[in-house]
């Protein structure tokens, strides 16, 4: 049982993610998590403001069910399938993080410097989460997909648009990690 409780290596996790994608395709659907954000807009009445949200959201109930399952899966994983080991991050990463003010990197999935309530409930802390979330939500719909739809499904299906989108993901991610995060958190 130990190997289940320990972190799973990439060569186990990657194929299992491919299996998730394939199961959804086999069930006649597709692997695209960001579509749920549009569905949630429609449920909230966004169709009054833009035609983009006028569609039969009930046809997306299956995907909202996947979301519900994902939340339950997250709960199960940390509650029953974890040995609370510290992440095996690269020492260089831990060091780089220390330099911009992140201590104890890898002791939790998310940095308390960003996600702990005492940091969230400040103007800067709140702005980080709101801006981060907004960019993800806006960007993913503009690009027509996210990591699941473009990086996993689109690349597996050898689609050029998905390759362009993934290049975009990297341009944005590299800019943020190398230039903006040190400005936001450093000093």
């Amino acid at each position: 049982m130990d190997f289940i409780l320990q972190p799973w290596p990439w060569y186990v996790s990657g194929p299992l993610i491919a299996l998730v994608m394939f199961l959804l395709v086999f069930f006649g659907k597709t692997f695209g998590m960001s579509s749920n954000l549009r569905t949630l807009c429609s449920i909230g009445g966004a169709g009054k403001y833009a035609d983009f949200f006028k569609f039969d959201w009930k046809s997306q109930k299956w995907n909202l069910t996947v979301v519900l399952g994902a939340m339950i899966g997250g709960f199960i994983a940390v509650t029953f399938l974890s040995d609370n080991s510290v992440m095996d991050l690269s020492p260089q990463t831990v060091n780089d993080l220390k330099e911009i003010g992140f201590s104890n990197a890898g002791e939790s999935l998310l940095p308390p410097e960003i996600y702990e309530w005492k940091n969230v409930l400040s103007l800067k802390g709140l702005a980080i989460l709101v801006i981060g979330g907004f960019l993800v939500g806006f960007g993913t719909r503009y690009a027509g997909g996210c990591t699941s739809g473009h990086a996993i499904t689109g690349l597996s299906n050898l689609q050029l648009p998905s390759l362009i989108a993934v290049i975009g993901f990297f341009i944005g991610g590299l800019l943020m990690t190398h230039f903006l995060l040190p400005l936001i958190f450093g000093a």
């Binding site: 749920n36 939340m71 993800v136 690009a143 993934v166 290049i167």
Partner: peptide
């Protein structure tokens, strides 16, 4: 749309550290 949208997404992904699947999982 793919390069612009992708870049905007990437900025948010690296800041919040969560994309549209993991945000629910987390």
């Amino acid at each position: 749309r793919y390069i612009l949208g992708g870049t905007i997404f990437g900025l948010g992904w690296a800041l919040a550290g969560a994309c549209p699947g993991p945000m629910y999982i987390l």
